[in-house]
Design a protein around this nucleic acid. Structure first.
Length: 410
DNA sequence: AGTCCACAGGAAGGGCAGGCGA
DNA sequence: TCGCCTGCCCTTCCTGTGGACT
């Protein structure tokens, strides 16, 4: 394993690392946002999307498209690949594509921010807050029209935007072409929520989903092939077939998630490198699986506001006390009990507590993040409440507990 | 069948910070 | 400077809910 042997000004502490042969040839190839020259097993979907967008090359109206599919099925990568090709095929910048991830907090999670982001992409300077939205719409129309371009707006995770601000904004976007005189706008909406469409207003549904493309999950063989291709350029030496099989099998179990497969391979490579091993072994894959899960959980919790962390701390504290009489996994907590514990934690730490209404929302948010499970139950005469249990695995719990205890223990 | 409980969760609005334009 | 706009976090008020209990 690479270790810092001695600290002196003569020997740079990184020199050993720099001299050591890396297991990676090109690590970027192993990231999920890398767009390869060829995307395997998605030719049918790419053709469908290309055919839907192609008319704009001849100045005709093209369909708005909805792209569906679960996580890691190649929706984003294929959409970006197609719109990049489209931009290349168009003459003199006639087509401009704008990619926006609607889940990006503080970037495109509200109507104002999304419009501001659009204007920034068109080269305008917009303040983060302060202008009325209709002013932003007007500036967008004027800017787009002045450039006489066809705009392709790729809205990734469009369901997140819908959940946050409703479909009014999507309706406005679909009506934009009536306002534009010289320019055109086409929308490609990407979502992994297969039921998203059902919640939309009829008018939005029909104009936004003129064309729909479903991305099916990859099977283990396809995943293995994808990994093989990436590993050829990603790693210095070839990988054992067993390694590829294992990564593919794990990812296939998780709804054919190619992103997961790539992450596993990359993190396993990083672990092998840190341990000074020349080759990746199955043990590295196991460790990578654990590490990815734990990192995700810890990062998610760290990114939550303090009050949300206190609620989680209260849930864990309460579950700990119940553990004495029942199994950890079986500890079912009720909103009222959690709120009482939350209030006592706030008191101990000298923090002003929120109302039960707000805490109820924070519990729902923790549930959405997959950190806890909260199910609404009725206890008959004893009222209606949420039954809360931990969704974090036991192996990760100690790190989570240590983090929260470090922040909120008096 | 009606009552009751302990909430869930929607709606409305307050207060704050920050920016714009007259 | 001031009025007006935004997003965000929060409270208050309210109605709805489902099943045990009477």
């Amino acid at each position: 394993m690479w270790k810092v042997e001695a600290v002196s000004k003569v020997d740079n502490i990184f020199s050993q690392y720099v001299q050591k042969q890396s297991v990676f040839k090109d690590k970027t190839v192993l990231t999920s946002n890398f767009i390869p020259e060829k995307i395997p097993h998605r030719s049918e979907e790419i053709t469908q999307l290309s055919l839907a967008l192609a008319p704009m090359l001849k100045g005709f109206h093209a369909s708005n498209v909805f792209v569906y599919g679960t996580c890691g099925t190649g929706k984003t990568i294929c959409s970006r690949f197609v719109v990049n090709q489209l931009e290349e095929a168009a003459k003199d910048g006639q087509i401009k594509t704008i990619y926006i991830n609607c889940k990006m907090k503080k970037v495109a999670d509200t109507e104002y921010r999304l419009l501001a982001q659009l204007l920034k992409e068109l080269g305008e300077c917009v303040p983060d807050t302060g202008l009325p939205t209709d002013v932003l719409y007007r500036r967008f129309f004027e800017n787009a029209d002045s450039k006489r371009q066809t705009l392709v707006l790729v809205l990734d995770e469009i369901d997140a935007l819908f959940k946050k601000i409703g479909d009014e904004f999507l309706y406005n976007l679909t009506r934009i072409n009536q306002e534009l005189k010289q320019a055109k706008l086409n929308i490609v909406g990407i979502t992994n929520d297969l039921s998203f469409r059902d919640g939309l207003d009829m008018r939005v549904r029909s104009s936004l989903g003129e064309e729909e493309i479903l991305f099916r999950p990859y099977n283990a063989l396809q995943l293995k092939h994808i990994l093989e291709e990436r590993a050829k350029t990603g790693f210095e030496t070839g990988l054992d077939e067993a390694i590829l099989n294992k990564c593919a099998a794990i990812a296939a179990q998780e709804h054919g998630d190619a992103r997961r497969a790539l992450d596993l391979l990359r993190v396993a490579g990083e672990l092998a490198e840190r341990q000074g091993d020349a080759k990746i072994t199955e043990a590295h894959i196991d460790m990578a699986e654990q590490k990815i899960d734990l990192d995700r959980v810890i990062e998610t919790i760290k990114s939550q506001p303090s009050q949300s962390q206190i609620v989680l701390h209260a849930i864990i504290k309460l579950a700990e006390s119940r553990k004495k009489t029942t199994k950890w996994a079986d500890a079912r907590l009720l909103t009222g009990d959690v709120f009482a514990t939350y209030e006592s934690v706030c008191k101990e730490n000298g923090i002003k507590s929120l109302t039960q209404r707000r805490v109820s929302d924070l519990i729902a948010e923790l549930d959405m993040l997959g950190i806890i499970t909260a199910k609404v139950i009725s206890k008959g005469r004893y009222g209606r409440t949420k039954e809360i249990s931990m969704a974090i695995s036991n192996s990760h719990l100690d790190r989570v507990k240590a983090f929260l205890a470090g922040r909120f223990s008096p």
